[in-house]
Design a protein around this nucleic acid. Sequence first.
DNA 1: TATCATAATGTCTTTGTGACACTAACTTAG
DNA 2: CTAAGTTAGTGTCACAAAGACATTATGATA
Lengths: 246, 246
Amino acid sequence: MNSQETESSFLENYNIHEFDIPLTSVDMTIFTIEDDTLKILLVKRAQFPSKGEWALPGGFINLKADDTLNDTVSRKLKEKTGVEISHLEQVATYGSASRDPRGWSVTISYMALISNNNITLTADESSEEVVWLPIEEIQKNYQLAFDHSTILAECYQRLKSKVQYTSLPINLLPNTFTLSELQKTFELILGYGIEKKSFRRRLLAADIIAETGEMRVGSNRPAKLYCPKSSSKEHLFQRSIEGPRE
Amino acid sequence: MNSQETESSFLENYNIHEFDIPLTSVDMTIFTIEDDTLKILLVKRAQFPSKGEWALPGGFINLKADDTLNDTVSRKLKEKTGVEISHLEQVATYGSASRDPRGWSVTISYMALISNNNITLTADESSEEVVWLPIEEIQKNYQLAFDHSTILAECYQRLKSKVQYTSLPINLLPNTFTLSELQKTFELILGYGIEKKSFRRRLLAADIIAETGEMRVGSNRPAKLYCPKSSSKEHLFQRSIEGPRE
DNA sequence: TATCATAATGTCTTTGTGACACTAACTTAG
DNA sequence: CTAAGTTAGTGTCACAAAGACATTATGATA
């Protein structure tokens, strides 16, 4: 290095491959609701390492194709689901020498919520199979590749805690829904029942949904259909939802 | 690729340098309180790129020295402050082709809280100067290197929102403190005054601090000294702190 | 037309917070 | 020695929002 060096001359001589740098990827926990069950998307790996094992969808950053991390994630999401994501949120980043046998690696995890409109899942060269599986069953009976069980657990935890004080579950439903459907979604994630009246008071006070004027007709009293207002996708409630008192 | 390939033969032939991978670093927003002011640590860069500009402390992962991301962060923290960190939390990860002139890069940002016990800051080969600066002044009058202004803003935002519903500010104080000192710390970060009685009720209900039995003597009525209980470093309050009513 | 199931609302109780007045304890000025 | 001043700490009421639970509303179906 000489004293005549400028920023541009420095950059001309800079070679990224001189250094040991970690592999960097993104991984996604994509939630949806199917058959009154919270499910996430898993892929069966078609390539080494961990070939044949179940894993979260994800992949390496493509330095040519992607301008930002969000581009990487959007590209991967489109590859698997081909569908518009309702909510996308970065959760955490994991890095260590041992989490991937190929070497020091870093992965950035994302949580995505989509409404299940009979999406057609598409496998590609990196995955033999792409399926929705109930999250509770994965946590009980599946051993995921790499540290994906940990990543999954942290994303699920994030979802569960955000459900206590935000309107996030709206992103798991279609564009119109009844209040009972919305409440059921909250309860599914929280793991306990909540009071109908309090729940509706919260929604009303938050002013985040609007009546569509239409009704959902079933074999009982029809229910009003609602749609989210623009601000509703992640509204923070003033207090968090409490479970039943003892 | 042949059909005889196994996981171990795959790994033998795997060369990380065949691929374009991004540079990966960590950056830290280290908060402390000095002279009743919230300050963070900045370094003046001694090397290209952005030589001479102010930046958040941080650096690249050392694949030989670090086993995990936390090792990288701990190492960097020790280099600059030489001090035990009270609270450390990953905040967000930024990646893009343009954020660093050396090429596609990813940085993982951390927020750290430490109590200011007259720490001696130490510069090293990568930084000419290491100083505590008031965060408000940085945001007004400083243009930081790379996207560090954005990273700083997001860490500050994280701190401010967590102060509303957790006991995080305890980590900015020494091991013993009075309730008034603690309240002042909350108010400093929140940016508004809070009610003494409600504040104390919350702390009592949370059961996160204990009387030491000692008193702080000044030129007025002496105040009881408290110390944190083990669970107190990030206790979640049942409701968030509200500002004054209109 | 009666029954049933779910939708929607009314209202009382409980809980925790903001407001604010009040008491307590110590230093300092005179 | 005493009164004034300042900060520490407590008592109490009003208010806001949530839980509990009863009640009414509205459709399908037998």
